[in-house]
Amino acid sequence: MAALLKASNITMQFGGLKAVDNVDMEIQPGEIHALIGPNGAGKTTFFNVVSGIYSPTSGSVIFDGEEITKLKAYQVTAKGITRTFQNILLFENMSIVENVMVGGHTRTDSGLVGSLLRTGKSRRAERECYENAMKTLAFVGMEELADQSASGLPYGKKRILEIARALASHPKIIMLDEPAAGMNSTESEELSRIIFKIRDAGITVLLVEHDMKFVAGISDMVTVLDHGQKICEGVPQMALNGPRVIEAYLGKEEEEEEA
């Protein structure tokens, strides 16, 4: 089977620091793929490269058979890649349903002139955008909150709203950056249900997560980064118990004790 996303020799350098160092990664369609590694390993940077927020120092990203390395973030979204953010970036000044409607930006076919003149086409497009947003909210179980402000949501719900916003773009792959961070156990159980639902809807999932139990319970494939380099890849039982992985994580704990 051809990979849905193929990143080859990705290097992202900030000054003297190689945040991502010559990483190869293939994501197969339909899988839940976890990207793990200690803090500062380069996971978020890898997401930023794939989603077009950074342009890599070297290497290439092929998505669905098409080179997307040089595309800007908004173009990448239109191709079918979407994401959430580790440091929640919601549109706090907007209602929940409006947040999700912005997620549907690339799938909404109404221009400014059409909207100004209230043409039939633009009204239809707006209605579809709204209905799509409500359906997506229902998918994650938040449709009752639609008209509330996004800023008033508790932490866990904000993370779910980010997922809904991302899903509204009808992606082929969704990249979740630490979706369970700050969630209690009920919330993270709910989250894993949602992630399985996303996979069952035919959307490939790439996720960064620290909670090993969460990763082991949910992913089909695990890639481990450390200091920007890929040190291990495989099915969860194997990847999570590899000697270098344990070392990377134990090393991290020592550092924390020192600090």
């Binding site: 989603s51 927020i53 800007k72 973030a73 908004y74 979204t77 239109a78 979407t82 994401r83 953010f85 970036l89 919601l90 549109f91 706090e92 000044n93 907007m94 912005v102 997620g103 930006h105 690339t106 916003r165 991302a166 773009s169």
Partner: peptide, 11 residues
């Protein structure tokens, strides 16, 4: 409100 997020949503 969040320019990075808006560009990631296709704006």
């Amino acid at each position: 409100s969040a320019p990075i997020a808006s560009s990631a949503m296709g704006v």
